[in-house]
C-alpha cells in the first residue's frame, strides 16, 4: 500500500532523511519511532506530497507522490504535528471546508462530516470555534479532518501528543479501529504506544532506518543482551575493571553509592546467563554481594540503544547487538 524506496531529503547541506526504504502492507499499522529530529516529520511530509524528495521514490496506494500528486493526495489523510486548524472557523465549518477541498461530493459531505465527528467524539464541539478548543480537542479535530474523506492511507504525526491519559487511550483505540480498512503510518516518540497499537515498527535515527520489525521481535532480539543489576560492597573500590574482565560482559556502568556501596549495571551478550560468573568475580575480589538481579530490556531501552550516539559505525542496525557491543567504553546515555 505504501512503498518507500531510497528516499533522501536534504535541506541545503543538511540531510534530514538519508536513503530510507520501507513498505507498509494494506490494513497494517506501522509505528514510526525515533527521537526528535530523527526525520520522522520530514519523511511524512514527503509521503503526503507536502514537499518533494531530493532522491528516491514513494508510492502511496499505487500512485507515485511525485508523478501523480493529486491522485495520491486524494487517498491520503494526514494529521500534521500541529493540527492545521483555522481558529476563526467553527469545527463544523472547518470540516465542511476540508470536505470540499478533499473532493468529497456535495451530497455526501454533511454525512461524512458528521460521521467523522462522531468517530473522534467531537460532535459536542461542532459549533465551537477551533481557536477556542483545548489541545486535546484540537488534536481530535485534526484527526477528524484526516479521516474525513475516508482515505485508504492515514499518516498521523504524533496523534497523541498533548492529550490526557484518557484521551490517549481513546485515540489509540480509534487508530486500531481504523486499521481494518485503512493503512496507517503513525509516528511517535512514546514507546508503549508502539507496542500497544502497531503491528510493525520502524525505528529511525538521524535520518536512517536503524531497525524494522514487530514490537515483539524487537524485544526478543535484544532480550538475550540482558542487563544484570548488582549491588556490591567494594569498600570504595571501582568494580568496573574486575567485572569487565568476565567473559561475555559488554558494558559495565558503576555508580558509587554511600559507605563504599556500588550499584552496578552490567550488560552481557545475547543468550548467555552470566549471573554465576559475575557472583564469582565479586566473591574472588573479596567484595560483599548485596543484590544480583537480571533485568529484561524494555522497548524503551532498545530504543535508547538504537538511537543513542554511541558508535561511529552506521551499519543501519544490520546487527543490533554488535552495534552496541562494539563500544563497551561508551558513556551511559
Amino acid at each position: 500500500m505504501i512503498e518507500v524506496s531510497h528516499l533522501t531529503k536534504s535541506y541545503g547541506s543538511v540531510t534530514a532523511v538519508d536513503d530510507i526504504s520501507f513498505r507498509v502492507e494494506p490494513g497494517e499499522i506501522l509505528g514510526f519511532l525515533g527521537p526528535n529530529g530523527a526525520g520522522k516529520t520530514t519523511t511524512m511530509r514527503v509521503l503526503t506530497g507536502y514537499m518533494p524528495a531530493t532522491e528516491g521514490r514513494a508510492v502511496v496506494a499505487g500512485f507515485d507522490v511525485f508523478e501523480q500528486p493529486i491522485e495520491a493526495k486524494r487517498r491520503i489523510g494526514y494529521l500534521p504535528e500541529t493540527p492545521p486548524l483555522y481558529p476563526e472557523m467553527t469545527v463544523h465549518e472547518y470540516l465542511s471546508f476540508v470536505a470540499r477541498i478533499k473532493g468529497v461530493p456535495g451530497g455526501e459531505r454533511e454525512q461524512r462530516v458528521n460521521s467523522s465527528m462522531e468517530r473522534t467524539r467531537i460532535d459536542d464541539m461542532a459549533g465551537r470555534h477551533c481557536g477556542k478548543l483545548s489541545k486535546g480537542y484540537r488534536q481530535r479535530v485534526g484527526l477528524a479532518q484526516a479521516i474525513l474523506h475516508n482515505p485508504e492511507v492515514l499518516i498521523l504525526d504524533e496523534p497523541t501528543a498533548g492529550l490526557d491519559p484518557k484521551q490517549i487511550i481513546e485515540t489509540r483505540e480509534l487508530v486500531k479501529e481504523l486499521a481494518g480498512d485503512h493503512t496507517i503510518i503513525l509516528s511517535t516518540h512514546i514507546l508503549p504506544e508502539v507496542s500497544q497499537t502497531c503491528q510493525r515498527v520502524v525505528i529511525i535515527n538521524r535520518g536512517r532506518v536503524v531497525a524494522e520489525d514487530t514490537p515483539d521481535n524487537l524485544t526478543a532480539r535484544l532480550r538475550g543482551a540482558e542487563t544484570v543489576l548488582l549491588e556490591i560492597d567494594t569498600n570504595g573500590a571501582d568494580p568496573a575493571p574486575a567485572l569487565s574482565a568476565v567473559d561475555g560482559v559488554t558494558r559495565v556502568t558503576a555508580t558509587p553509592g554511600a559507605t563504599g556501596l556500588s550499584k552496578t549495571e552490567v550488560e552481557t551478550v545475547q543468550g548467555r546467563d552470566l549471573r554465576r560468573d559475575l557472583a564469582r568475580a565479586v566473591v574472588t575480589n573479596g567484595w560483599g554481594l548485596l543484590e544480583l538481579r537480571s533485568m529484561r530490556m524494555s522497548l524503551e531501552e532498545i530504543f535508547l540503544h538504537l538511537t543513542t550516539e554511541e558508535t561511529d559505525e552506521d551499519e543501519g542496525g544490520a546487527d543490533l547487538v554488535t552495534a552496541t557491543s562494539s563500544a563497551p567504553e561508551a558513556p551511559d546515555a
Binding site: Y50, I70, R74, Y78, P80, T82, P83, Y86, V98, K102
Partner: peptide
C-alpha cells in the same frame, strides 16, 4: 505561521 498551509498543500489541489 499557523501550519494550515500543510492542509492546503497536502489536499488534492493544484
Amino acid at each position: 505561521r499557523s501550519g494550515t498551509i500543510e492542509l492546503l498543500l497536502t489536499s488534492p489541489l493544484s
